[in-house]
Simulated scan of single mutants.
Amino acid sequence: MFQVLNEAEVQENPALLSAAWNSGSSFILLPTPSPVTEEWLSKALALIPAEFAQGHFGILTSGSTGTPKLVIGSKSRTTLLARQIHARQELESVETAIVTLPLSYSYSLVNQWVWAHLHDRRIVQTRGLADPATLLTTFEEAKSSMLCMVGSMLPVLRRYVAAGRTFPEVIRLNFAGGPFPQAEMEWLHQVFPNARVYHNYGCTEALPRLTIRRADESPDAMVLGAPVEGAEFDVDEEGMLLFRSPYAASLVLDVEKATRIALSDWVPTGDRAEFLPNGRVRLLGRKSEVFKRHGEKISLSSLGETIQSIWNKGLAFYTETAADGETGHVLVLAPDADQASARTILLHLRQKYRRPFWPIRIENAETIPLSGNGKPDLAALKQQPRTLLWKQIL
């Protein structure tokens, strides 16, 4: 019923994706390598109602749970969203979309591939940070280009951009898929002097956009922009952010069940949030990144933003049960952090936060491994060697 494409095939032959999108039939785009087995995929596909065999597409995601799921959306509704993105990001002058993230990531697929396909613009697929030299050359050579990145890519990118090197042909720079890199704005304006920077927010179930704002509209990385036309937000009694959108996915599947999403349904984003007096939404962090320690609500996203104002390399957090029986967080820095770096960060945190907000440990790693969508891969991080720089005495 669904044609199955994998990313490696599309990389080798881009016409496959164009043909699948233009066809009336539905298709699924899987990452390469795929995190699911053929058996898992067969069971999930068997749950899709027959009415979705036409005019739809699917992508694989793990969301905030780590459990694989297929998200099925409407081609026509996603086309309307791509037109919204075009208007809100003022993309008429953009000639080229440079793809730095996998196309199986909804952010790249919609904001770049669908947009370029719809508006007849050039799309350049790259190996991203796996081949930084070629990537930077592409930044220089591709005319009037747009990038879609995640903030966790910037510490790695910094290592390869020589002082004084700039990329004036990049005129749109989009961030999504994680905390907005507010602390990097000065550097970004230096390196991409002609780029208009946008803070985007959404989730895979939104396919994928819910809000868009220019970066210079707010100095607070956690404040979202105005919703795309027709999208709405609500916050439930547990502080979880919900949305409904006319462009959202129609169906979400795992190997056990298929869940329909009606246009009137409120859908969880996986984030905690609050409404501001002006009606805008301020994020507090992912559900897994917000917890209480000694009665204080800890937001790892907010802490990360604070630390990045003085540490412009890689960082990540993971949580564990501390010796006092409460949940605590471990801060991992990369690369080349030492005890002096840890002391500087601790002094900065102590000036801004009480003791429950401090990490229970600070560690150094050679790298912060990233998942296919550019977010820190915590499972891989915990498996690699790390050096202890500081430990809180409880």
Rank of each mutant, 00 (worst) to 15 (best):
R165Y: 12
A97L: 08
N194S: 08
K75Y: 03
H117S: 15
F192L: 11
I72M: 02
V191R: 04
F167T: 02
T67L: 10
V99P: 07
E186T: 13
I123S: 12
V110W: 01
A163K: 10
L157V: 10
L157Y: 00
Q190P: 03
E205C: 10
A176R: 06
S106A: 14
F175M: 11
S74P: 06
C203D: 02
R158D: 09
V161T: 05
E186N: 14
G63D: 09
H119T: 10
L173T: 05
R172Y: 13
R121F: 09
H199L: 05
F167Y: 07
E205H: 06
S93G: 13
M146Q: 12
S62W: 02
L173H: 09
F167I: 05
A87H: 12
S64P: 11
P193D: 03
G66V: 11
R122K: 11
A142P: 00
L135Y: 02
G66Q: 09
R77D: 14
L70C: 00
G128P: 04
C203M: 14
L118E: 09
G63K: 02
T79R: 13
T137E: 14
R159S: 15
T96N: 03
L157F: 09
R88G: 00
V191C: 02
K143H: 10
Y105L: 11
T65K: 10
Q182P: 04
L103Y: 04
I85M: 02
S145D: 13
A195W: 02
C148M: 13
A162V: 12
E140W: 04
L81P: 01
T166R: 06
K75W: 04
A195G: 04
F192K: 11
S93I: 12
V197G: 08
L118R: 05
K69G: 06
L91K: 06
G178N: 07
A142F: 05
W113S: 06
S108Q: 15
T204R: 01
G178Y: 08
T204F: 00
N194H: 11
F192M: 14
P168H: 09
T204G: 04
